[in-house]
Nucleic acid binder design. Structure first.
Lengths: 95, 95
DNA sequence: TCTTATACCGGTATTTGTATCACGGTCGAG
DNA sequence: CTCGACCGTGATACAAATACCGGTATAAGA
């Protein structure tokens, strides 16, 4: 195997991540936020619904920027339980 | 065209991004940092050399975690010039 | 009712990320 | 010189991200 398929855990994380974005979007429409971030509405929808569980870094940066979110908070919110601050290795994140 | 190819500007940004990671890695070896982050050494190499200009969000999260970097600082360091704080739309980031 | 806007879903196309393998280069220890 | 560790490049393989299309459903407005 070359490209390890996404684990169920990663897909769950993607759903939580999308829920966070959707919550942060609030009343604004998908197309508006997507336009501000410079991504297509379909992409934003897939990320929000968890069908794109591991979006690209700069896509997330653009969305967080459009939504006034902190990347560190986003990452922390989707991090596995018991996430320390810096010394903890073996995070097994990737993807 | 469906999946827009990466623009030269995005590739440059990827190179800057990789240079930042390499600088933050300092003396530590690639294999060690990659192992801590939970990614393969080849993947880290491609990101550092800019041959993977738009890595996945959680991959970057894991690397930033392994390197004790702030995601917001990373994003800011790779942001286009004239990056305000929140109102600036049309960022045209994506990828 | 008809139209519009929004969101969801399926399919399709293309590009990219991730990982493995193979080979070569450099450097230091033996 | 050989061996090992590290870095780099190339090719290969597969899964996923992004984007566009059409269709569907719902709710608000003319």
């Amino acid at each position: 195997m070359v490209r390890t398929p996404l684990t169920p855990w990663e897909r769950e994380r993607g759903e939580r991540f999308g829920a966070l974005l959707r919550e942060a979007r609030g009343e604004r429409s998908m197309v508006e936020v997507a336009a501000v971030a410079g991504v297509s509405a379909e992409t934003l929808r897939k990320i929000e619904t968890g069908r794109a569980p591991t979006p690209s870094f700069f896509t997330v940066v653009a969305l967080a920027f459009a939504l006034d979110l902190s990347l560190d908070e986003l990452a922390a919110a989707c991090a596995p339980p018991g996430d320390g601050e810096h010394g903890e290795q073996g995070a097994a994140l990737s993807a």
